[in-house]
Design a protein around this nucleic acid. Structure first.
Length: 954
RNA sequence: GCCGACGUGGCGGAAUUGGUAGACGCGCUGGAUUCAAAAUCCAGUUCUUUCGGGAGUGUGGGUUCGAUUCCCACCGUCGGUACCA
């Protein structure tokens, strides 16, 4: 008889529920530990085998911590607002709330099947008004605060107003717009609208013009994801970048603190590097280039002010405000065409474009700040509007991109650095001494930068400046399925916030989810909702990251209706101790959450500066995408599918790969992946539009249900396999429920861990799960005999058995703490193989072993634990303690090497001294041959590790 | 393009401070058991070999008595690139 996972899991689930094993409360008598999983978005495809990878790891860790005496908070909830639900609603008319609720239900049942230890009483859903009430409240706080650069924290706008009334903008230490300077009298004389506009320059949540992907034909704003190659993914219509008034968050105010905070975090160096690069701090100079024939100036930021005499032209981003103004009539047509071309491209495409250099001359010139020489002003897509000032001074001698550009358009190149002493130096290397640079001549780069900045400052055309690549976050979406802004515009169009009592501002009911033709959110159509006594409501909604930027705080006190989190709860749980999730969130979610957390810290609502102390990145479990090649040209009016090999011969450019359901494919993911006759029939049932298609492979042709063989063999249409995301649209989603049904949840959990290191990505492959399944059966057979009778006794364990146990305890504990779960599974297998061999039935070994396995296999171990007569859960039991004394051994085996290569083994006692070791090793019979081949020139003995002879053959 | 990660048998992977390359598992081969199969158990399994060895951790170089591990250059794959979440 063997372990029946279906019965055991049902019994154990009921037991956990009945005993409320995972319910957790503030308990000051125990140390706290907060384990968090990244918020899932409940997609319509359900949970696939990739999602739980991190969840299983955090579940193991949280169970380990609980057994080690901690009060563990391990919650779960849903990031439930989002684009896919809205898209689904537009297509099917199903309300996003309904489809989302259904998806959440599906996720919940799948999560429960895996046996996670979540305290579900703390679940949150971002689309729940009880939750988003507080998302709206935090937004109001951001709106009502500015960033003080002197005290380095957020302060109330009321303080700012007081200052403006007393001193105007002089001595103002507020982060933000330095465009406008006013005296207190001017401030007082301003109209309410003007005052509101000035304050917008400082608010942490503010409105400004930002660029959106605008699709005229669809009459809507598109997400980057919905744009492919400059056209809409749906319909293939052109998409351009269009400026629109949008809410933004002034995350740039926190750039320095976000950078510094990284030093305090236990995150991987690579992740911190990603964030540092994203923030992109650089120091250099701000320089103004006056325009010829105009009072305006072009502001640039440069990290290389030393090369100022190498500037031979200027480049503006095509979207730069000045472009329209300065373009001469003769150049207008060319410039407009170029701007239109560039606005149709995504930022990635623009940055990735390296081989072809493009640009257009505006006809205008700027003046060099020192020489007064005219500098032609160009526009080019390699300069981005939102990076720095959207303009650059071009130094083709010291910048590779400028250099290519200058060569392409025959612009002059002035060398400013003598690098003759450094033959290997590349463009941009900061070596050599300055030449052709007036007062900078002869200086080294470092000195030249200093002096150049000084002279710019003295001439009133520049100054030292720090720059950050980080940009303010666009916070508006023209969508229905997101948090409504708690904002009403009064008759003067001034934004007013709602009071706490008026929150939550709920989404109105809606039947048509299409956006309006002007590109506004569908909310704009609900006049009964948008019109209020005090004015019109904001119709944009908040982006996906709004709800997920603070959810970890809500878990601490998820049902509190008076505050977003109580002081008592947040002072006990403090911050997340361990956060597990994918690297895809490296700069989005993880940056926004840190920003919000620091803001809430400034306001005194949270006691920590950083929300996530330790972070582990889980790799992705990828899917295999299988596709078959469809000829782009029809053959005799029929579609034609071709074997992958034949398609390659004819040239893949003539074919479109059509992704197919992996269930139809035999040997999917391998070189021989193919669909056989049965697979083709399944494919045709699934995609009837291809029912007349020809399927051609090297062995014959299939059409209209009949296979005509050329060789007498069966048909095998070779498919194309590639590794990629597991996604509903690629028809390659693998549902954990199926695996669990067949093998049990514990086997599924352990197999996912066994696949490899948690942080590594790998394609899903069910081959190999048998090994884990066998392990579970073997483990079971240590506790029960063939008649399902408990075979555990009180007899003593042998020395070897205890050594096996303690070797396992030591290894598993160490590996859990090092997040190396795959090697834990191996360690369990080794232990069970050894114990099985020695036929132990001693409770002194088997009970600790059960506890050791509990975090990995919570159902199996709980079931056996209860069978052993225990009444409270094994997951509340104490973790086994490792004792060194059981591992002491009276012999050690040294590898004996010649020139680093192992040639013999030497078994000896651990306290043998060095000279004896050498003597013993030299005496070994396999060594005679090697020693006779030459002279020993060196002998290396590493205690307890190895012995190496360096032999020189003579 | 830029930023980050990864690359080891037929396959997933192990070797965490430079010290026995291939733990553990899958697959495969042979055997035991069985009327037979499944299941289970035992043995073998990097390649090559004249059976002494030799080669071998993406490629090419370097440091070292010794390199999967450290350094340099390159190739490939994956993730992010600011409105997918």
């Amino acid at each position: 008889m063997q372990y029946n996972h279906r019965d055991a899991e049902a019994r154990v689930k009921a037991f956990w529920k009945d005993q409320e094993v995972y319910k957790v409360e503030v308990n000051t008598s125990k140390p706290k530990y907060y384990v968090l999983d990244m918020f899932p978005y409940p997609s319509g495809a359900g949970l696939h085998v990739g999602h739980p990878l991190g969840y299983i790891a955090s579940d193991i860790y949280s169970r380990y911590k609980r057994q080690s005496g901690y009060n563990v908070l391990h919650p779960m909830g849903y990031d439930a607002f989002g684009l896919p639900a809205e898209q689904y609603a537009i297509q099917t008319g199903v309300h996003p709330a309904d489809s989302t609720a259904k998806n959440i239900q599906q996720y919940r049942s799948q999560l429960d099947n895996i046996g996670f230890d979540y305290d579900w009483s703390r679940e949150v859903q971002t689309c729940d008004p009880k939750y988003y009430k507080w998302t709206q409240w935090i937004f109001i706080q951001l709106f009502e605060h500015y960033y003080c650069t002197k005290s380095n924290k957020a302060k109330p706008i009321a303080d700012l107003i007081k200052h403006l009334g007393a001193k105007g903008t002089s001595e103002l230490t507020a982060f933000g717009g330095n465009e406008t300077n006013v005296t207190s009298e001017e401030w007082k004389a301003m109209t309410a609208v003007e005052q509101a506009q000035l304050l917008m320059q400082y608010r942490l949540a503010y409105r400004k013009e930002s660029f959106v992907n605008w699709c005229e034909e669809l009459g809507t704003v598109l997400a980057n994801d919905e744009v492919k190659d400059g056209v809409s993914e749906r319909g293939g219509y052109p998409v351009i970048k269009k400026p629109m008034l949008q809410w933004s968050l002034r995350i740039t105010a926190y750039a320095e603190r976000l950078l510094e905070g990284l030093n305090t975090l236990e995150w991987s160096e690579s992740l911190k590097t990603i964030q540092r690069n994203w923030i992109g701090k650089s120091s250099g100079a701000q320089v103004f280039f006056k325009l010829e024939n105009s009072d305006d100036a072009i502001e640039v930021f440069t990290t290389r002010p030393d090369t100022i005499f190498g500037v031979t032209y200027m480049v503006l981003a095509p979207e730069h405000d000045l472009v329209k103004e300065i373009t001469t009539p003769g150049q207008q047509a060319e410039v407009e065409a170029y701007v239109a071309m560039a606005s149709a491209k995504s930022e990635i495409d623009r940055m990735a474009e390296q081989k072809t250099v493009s640009g257009a001359f505006t006809g205008a010139f700027a003046k060099h700040p020192f020489t007064g020489n005219p500098l032609p002003i160009w526009i080019s897509e390699y300069v981005l509007k939102d990076y720095g000032t959207g303009a650059i001074m071009a130094v083709p001698a010291e910048d590779a991109r400028d250099n290519r550009f200058a060569k392409q358009f025959d612009l002059p190149i002035t060398q400013v650095q003598d690098k003759s002493q450094f033959p290997d130096a590349q463009i941009g290397d900061k070596v050599g001494r300055m030449i052709n640079s007036d007062f900078l001549n002869g200086l080294k780069v470092k000195e030249a930068i200093k002096l150049a900045i000084q002279r710019l400052y003295d001439s009133g055309v520049g100054s030292r400046q720090r720059n950050y690549k980080l940009r303010d976050a666009n916070y508006s979406r023209q969508r229905y399925w997101g948090e409504p802004f708690p904002i009403v515009y009064n008759r003067e169009q001034i934004a007013q916030t709602l009071t706490l009592a008026e929150l939550p501002l709920e989404l109105p009911e809606l039947e048509d989810f299409k956006p309006t033709r002007e590109g506004k959110s569908p909310l704009a159509r609900v006049e009964s909702w948008t019109n209020t006594d005090s004015g019109k409501r904001e119709t944009d909604t908040m982006p996906g990251f709004a709800g997920s930027s603070w959810y970890f705080l809500r878990y601490m006190d998820s049902t509190n209706d008076d505050v977003f989190v109580s002081e008592e709860a947040v002072n006990y749980w403090k911050e997340v101790d361990l956060y597990i999730g994918g690297t895809e969130h490296a700069v989005g979610h993880l940056m926004y959450s840190r920003f919000w957390h620091k803001f809430l810290y400034d306001l005194g609502y949270v006691p920590t500066q950083e929300p996530f102390k330790k972070l582990i990145n889980q790799g992705m479990i990828q899917g295999v995408i299988e596709s078959i090649y469809l000829d782009k040209n029809k053959h005799d009016g029929s579609n034609r599918f071709l074997c992958a090999g034949l398609a390659k011969q004819e040239g893949l450019e003539h074919f479109t790969p059509i992704p197919i359901h992996i269930d139809f494919v035999t040997d999917y993911g391998s070189e021989n992946s193919h669909i056989n006759l049965d697979g083709i029939k399944k494919f045709l049932d699934w995609r009837p539009e291809y029912k007349d298609a020809i399927f051609e492979c090297s062995k014959g042709i299939f059409q209209n249900g009949k296979f005509t063989s050329k060789t007498g063999d069966d048909s095998l249409l070779i498919t194309h396999s590639e590794v990629g995301k597991m996604s509903k649209s690629k028809y390659n989603v693998i549902n954990p429920d199926h695996i669990i049904e067949q093998y049990g949840a514990d086997c599924f959990r352990m197999y996912e861990m066994f696949l490899g290191p948690i942080e590594q990505s790998k394609p899903w492959d069910t081959n190999g799960i048998e090994g884990v399944s066998k392990f579970i059966k073997k483990f079971w057979s240590l506790y029960f005999d063939e008649n399902q009778t408990l075979r555990v006794t009180d007899e003593d364990a042998s020395k070897e058995q205890l050594a096996t146990l303690h070797k396992a305890i030591q290894k598993v504990k160490k590996d859990i703490e090092g997040f190396s779960f795959n090697t834990c599974v191996s360690a369990f297998m080794v232990a069970v193989n050894e114990l099985k061999k020695s036929q132990t039935s001693s409770k002194k070994v088997l009970q600790p072993l059960l506890k050791l396995l509990a975090p990995f296999a919570p159902f199996l171990t709980e079931h056996i634990w209860l069978e052993l007569g225990n009444t409270s859960s094994i997951h509340l039991s104490e973790y086994p303690i490792f004792e060194e004394k059981y591992l002491q051994s009276d012999s050690i085996i040294y590898p004996v090497c010649v020139n680093g290569k192992k040639r013999a083994d030497l078994e000896t006692s651990p306290d043998t001294d060095k000279d004896t070791l050498i003597e013993l090793a030299k005496a070994l019979s396999p060594m005679q041959k090697w020693l006779s081949e030459g002279e020993v020139v060196k002998t290396i003995v590493v205690p307890n590790r190895m012995i190496n002879f360096v032999i020189k053959s003579g």
